[in-house]
């Protein structure tokens, strides 16, 4: 599958070493995507990596990705500027089941940059808020200056129909919010909810998701109502090359969004 050419419409810094960019196709129409899916972004002459789509699925013309500069390709992507060109393959992978979970209380649990793959689902749920019994976002980051989409979080927090709990691992004295881990914050957020009505979508470091899933189970959230987004080294993105193999699953093709009880056994295995 060949990459399509896209041009960088705009870029903006999110955090130190983290940038978002909006892309527009050079040829043809924009591609519709589902919340949770990813694209393979190709920095010409450097390489290609999988990056989650972090924009609004209702606005496919504004294709947005958020990237942390951690290697050669991601550094090249975060260095792109308005007017630069790159290759895009996708969208690929499974999606958050936002449409199937209408009528339920959606609990989003995000850690660090894990908020980026969840944001399209958050947009969808908030745009169709009347279809859901409730919405709670629990978000953890390393420190206050590493909170992704901080302005948007403030806006979500100011809504009367949405609960937002933010916590950081450590902070200076000027911080007036919570300090502690996501799992502690999640326990509190779940305390006032009927667990049978909760559907949870989690994205963040695997260990954070593992402990959060335990918290959800302890609170009584049904195991078949918990989804996680996995991250592995994806290359072909169509389940051929095996780079992202996770037990019998290919993260690029069968994931990245998995119902937790389908992969729970694999998550407890070491170093796969």
């Amino acid at each position: 599958m060949l990459p399509r050419r896209y041009r960088v419409h705009s870029t903006w810094a999110e955090l130190a070493g983290v940038a978002s960019m909006e892309l527009t196709p050079v040829d043809g129409a924009a591609v519709v995507f589902q919340p949770g899916q990813f694209n393979m972004l190709y920095a010409f002459g450097v390489g290609e990596i999988a990056i989650s789509i972090s924009g609004d699925p209702a606005e496919p013309d504004r294709l947005i990705h958020t990237t942390r500069s951690v290697g050669a390709v991601s550094a090249a992507l975060t260095d792109l500027r308005q007017g630069d060109m790159l290759g895009v393959r996708g969208p690929f992978g499974s999606a958050w089941p936002v449409a199937a979970e209408t009528g339920r209380h959606i609990v989003f649990v995000a850690g660090g940059l894990g908020l980026a793959p969840l944001r399209p689902a958050i947009y969808h749920v908030l745009e169709h808020r009347e279809r859901y019994a409730g919405v709670t976002l629990v978000y953890g980051a390393r420190s206050p200056d590493e909170l992704l989409y901080a302005e948007e979080i403030k806006a979500w927090k100011s809504r009367f129909d949405t609960e937002v709990e933010v916590t950081v691992d450590h902070a200076g004295s000027a911080w007036t919010g919570r300090v502690g881990v996501v799992t502690t914050c999640l326990d509190r957020a779940l305390a006032g909810l009927d667990p049978a009505t909760v559907s949870a979508f989690l994205c963040g470091p695997e260990i954070m998701m593992r402990f959060s899933v335990m918290g959800l189970a302890d609170a009584g959230v049904p195991p078949d109502r918990v989804w996680i987004s996995m991250e592995r080294n994806m290359k072909c993105a169509i389940g051929f090359c095996g780079h992202c193999q996770f037990g019998p699953e290919f993260v690029c093709r069968d994931g990245p969004v998995f119902r937790h009880d389908h992969v729970a056994q694999l998550l407890s295995m070491k170093e796969i």
């Binding site: 983290v18 990596i49 990056i51 989650s52 972090s54 990705h65 958020t66 990237t67 942390r68 951690v70 991601s74 850690g111 660090g112 940059l113 894990g114 980026a116 793959p117 953890g140 980051a141 390393r142 590493e146 691992d169 450590h170 502690g180 881990v181 799992t183 502690t184 963040g204 470091p205 260990i207 954070m208 402990f211 991250e231």
Partner: peptide, 20 residues
């Protein structure tokens, strides 16, 4: 115990390297 477990997770510095 909850707080010791939480502190262990904080020590892991979980959020440092996740790609978006």
């Amino acid at each position: 115990a909850v707080r010791v477990r939480a502190l262990r997770m904080q020590l892991l510095d979980l959020y440092g390297t996740r790609k978006g």
